[in-house]
Structures are given as structure tokens and as C-alpha cells.
Write a protein that binds this DNA or RNA. Structure first.
Lengths: 198, 198
DNA sequence: CCTACCGATCGGTAGG
DNA sequence: CCTACCGATCGGTAGG
């Protein structure tokens, strides 16, 4: 059962994710967020213990969106087929404009990589988890004989992951509308190379 | 001839680049920068017209560092050989820890991609210029018959560029000390694939 | 280059 | 959920 003010809290977090994707999790000030959701500052912060707590809850909410849009309900066969589906869903999610500022975690990564603390740890944990999921899927595909056994799963995951992050960069900073198609082409070419021939 | 206070100004910009690589160009506040260089706030801002001007000069200084460490004095043969040298010098520069927060332009990209203005334009111009230089070198290598003529220069440059940015991300956020070796392996593998066999 | 100051905004709290 | 307020810090200026 949701608590009584669950709806408002969710609305605040939805606005917080969008604001943070543009202005960063630090630029996400309580006053600015309050204006955005048309509440008083104390009304906003009353839902959270502190700004750090608000940032942590915002990261957690973004993890929830990612899981729902990228990971949930994938029915493809485990291995190479599921790897392709996961990468395509990720690409589509980042390209979709779900958040005004592009990929939430790319922005949060760059902002918090130099600031020790719980927010940085939460961002690192979430992004590492996703990277490790790609590694695991590559490993499975190797075990199934779909990907060449001389491929290093960590290396292949690194290269695939790089392409989607690059696409986000190229679209957000350089306004390259073809960025995600380039990521897709790179992924397909790389997987084609890794695939066991025959 | 440098103006009389050129030395101090350069010291301020050196500190500003380092601070911005960690805290961002916005987190680079005049007060914090003043404390870092042991001056008063007005002493710092006196060298610049405004905070935006300070940010622009800091970007310009970072372009200068990049040119000196990556682009200057490359003697390799134009084409594939020079492409390899440029990518290796870029990788080494980003890996070197020249700035505390890792790649200055990666941090600035994520921070300003959602904020219109002159700072964003300067960051976009600088990074686009570097990307276009990689494209140009690929094109030359194709013309020289060193890279297969069915390679799309923009696509290949996108993929190579992605690997170094990914390495910066992996080291700064995930503390992956092997990140730049992964970038190197990816670059070599990709160039090997693009290379004309025989 | 400094001190001293401006109005605005920051995160957060008191009190209701 | 609100108003009203706290001390700290923001970018920037006056005056020297």
C-alpha cells in the first residue's frame, strides 16, 4: 500500500529526475524543484530528510525507470539474442527523450565521479550493475557457443557499452540526430565480429 | 610579450582547470577558486570580466593543454600511422592524471550539454574539432589505401572516439585502472578490422 | 591587489 | 502542507 502522500512524492521525484538530467543532481536545488512542482521549499524537503536523501531517492527512482524501460519483460532467448534485445532497448530508452537532459546516469556519472559520498556510490553501483549484466550475457552467449570463445567478455562489454554512451554524448552536446543509429551500427558490426561463424 | 600579471592569471587558470575537472565549471565558484590560489575574490575576478568569461577562458586554457599534449609535434606519417599516434597520445593524456577529475572536456560536456550559452558552444566547438580531426585522418588513410574504402569515416571515428571516452568514465566512476588498456585494445582491434589486408 | 558590502539563493529549521 | 526565518555562500561592485 502506498503511503498517503505517495502520489505527490512520486510527482516530486519525477520532476527531480528530469531536472537532474539537465541541471545535474547538485543543480537540482530544493528551491528550483519546489518552483517546478508548485510547492514551497519546506513542502518539498518535508518528503525527504535532506538534500542528499533527495538525491539518493532521485537516483533510486531513475534506476526504477531504467529497469521498467530496459530490463523488464524481456522474453528473448538467453544469450546472444537477449544481449541484442537488451542493447536495443537501452539504446531506444536513451534516445527516447524520457528525460530532457538525455541519459540520467551519464550526467550523474560525470557530476559525481569526483565527489565521494553516498550519491556517488549509488550512481556507481547502478551503472556497474548494468555493465555487469552485459558481461554476464556475453559470458552466457560464449558458453552457448554463439560468441567466439576467444572473446574477453569484459572487453566486449566495455566496447558495446561505450557505443551507447558515445551516442548520448554526440546527441546531447553536438545535436547529432544520427548518433543512436551510429551506436546501432557499431553494436551490430562488433557483435557480427564476435559471433561464431557457422 | 605577456602582460604584467600574466603569471598570476595563468596560475589562476591552471587552478581553475583542475577545479573544474572535479567540481565542474559551475561548481568552480569564484570564492572557492580564490581560496585555492590564496587571493581575495575580487583579486580573482579582477582578471576576468565575469564568471562566464572565467569559464570561457578556462575552456580556452584546457584547449591549449590538449593541443600541447596531444596534437603538437606529431611527426608520424599522415594517414593510418598518424591516426594511431594521435589516438595513443589522446589516451595517454586522459590517463595521465593531468587534471584531478580526469578528462576536462568529458566533464564539461556532461555539465553543459543542457545549458545554452557561450560556454556550451565553446565546449562543443572544441570537442567537435577534435572528432573532425579523427575523421579527417581516417579519410586520408582511406585515400592512401591504408584503410578499406568501404569504411565510413564518420562511423569509424565515432567508434574510436567512444572507446577513449568510455575509458575515462570507467576509471573516474568505477576506479577501473585497466580502463585505458581496454580502450587501447579496442582501438587496435577496430583499426585492424578497418585496415586493408595485404 | 585589498576590505567591505550588495541582493539573491543555498540547505535547512521553527512553529503552526 | 504553509510562512518566516537562520547563517553561509553565490556573483559582482564600490572605493581605495
Amino acid at each position: 500500500m502506498p503511503r498517503s502522500s505517495g502520489k505527490t512524492r512520486d510527482q516530486i521525484l519525477e520532476a527531480a529526475m528530469d531536472l537532474a538530467s539537465v541541471e545535474g543532481l547538485e543543480g537540482l536545488s530544493i528551491g528550483r524543484l519546489a518552483r517546478r512542482v508548485e510547492m514551497s521549499k519546506s513542502g518539498v524537503i518535508g518528503h525527504f530528510k535532506s538534500k542528499e536523501d533527495l538525491q539518493l531517492e532521485t537516483v533510486r527512482a531513475a534506476v526504477g525507470v531504467f529497469e521498467a524501460e530496459v530490463q523488464a519483460g524481456v522474453t528473448a532467448e538467453p544469450g546472444l539474442a537477449r544481449l541484442r534485445v537488451l542493447l536495443e532497448r537501452w539504446t531506444r530508452h536513451v534516445a527516447s527523450g524520457r528525460f530532457s537532459g538525455g541519459c540520467f546516469f551519464w550526467a550523474a556519472s560525470a557530476e559525481f565521479d569526483g565527489r565521494p559520498g553516498r550519491v556517488r556510490d549509488a550512481v556507481a553501483r547502478a551503472t556497474l550493475h548494468w555493465l555487469e549484466q552485459i558481461v554476464a550475457e556475453v559470458r552466457l552467449a560464449i558458453r552457448l557457443g554463439e560468441i567466439r570463445s576467444d572473446e574477453d567478455p569484459e572487453q566486449l562489454a566495455f566496447e558495446l557499452h561505450a557505443l551507447v554512451q558515445e551516442a548520448n554524448w554526440a546527441r546531447q552536446l553536438l545535436d547529432r540526430s544520427d548518433a543512436f543509429d551510429r551506436a546501432r551500427r557499431g553494436i551490430e558490426r562488433r557483435l557480427g565480429q564476435a559471433e561464431k561463424s557457422n
